[in-house]
Every structure is written in C-alpha cells, then in structure tokens.
C-alpha cells in the first residue's frame, strides 16, 4: 500500500506508523476522556486517520482512506487538518 505524504509524495506504507481514527479529539477536561481513549466508531468506509511518517519527514498525517477498499482520497499534514 502507498500513502501520499503531503511533503514526501507517494511512499510505501512500511515507512509509516499507524495510530488510528483521527476523529476523536482530546478533551480538555476529564469529561469525555474515557470515550476519547477507548471508544471508536471503527468505520467501514472512508475514515480520517493518523499516520506518522516515521521513516520520512516525521510528520503526522491525516489520511482519508476507505477501510473496505484501502482507496485513499486525501492526505494532509495533521497540524493543518481543520477539524
């Protein structure tokens, strides 16, 4: 599988570390922390997710990938990812 790193270009998935669903956002208080840490939508379909380009530019990237087909429709730097 290739991932389109916004900085480096198309790269083998082996260069990346996977974290998971990008949807949960860290709450600023204890409220919602359990949901944030443990609960996932586990979407069958397009999902925004975080990958770390560990063997490349060392940036966290938000990739939109369909979990049924592995087709990738978007990838942006996570820091620039508007939520």
């Amino acid at each position: 599988m290739r991932l389109p790193c916004p900085y480096c270009g198309q790269r083998d998935s082996r260069e990346f570390v996977y974290r998971g669903d990008a949807a949960p956002t860290r709450p600023s208080s204890e409220e919602g922390m359990y949901d944030y840490v443990y609960l996932r939508d586990n979407v069958p379909g397009p999902m925004r997710e975080h990958w770390y380009h560990a063997q490349g530019c060392r940036n966290w990237i938000t990739v939109t990938r369909d979990t049924r087909t592995h087709r990738i429709s978007a990838a942006v730097l996570a820091r620039e990812d508007s939520r």
Binding site: M1, D12, S13, Y18, N42, P44, R65, T67
Partner: peptide, 13 residues
C-alpha cells in the same frame, strides 16, 4: 498489518 481494515486481504510489507 496494523491499520484499520474491513478488507480480508493484507499487503506486502
């Protein structure tokens, strides 16, 4: 393989 998937197939890495 390490990423969320509902496709019953893996990849080369």
């Amino acid at each position: 393989d390490g990423y969320n998937s509902y496709a019953s197939r893996g990849n080369l890495p």
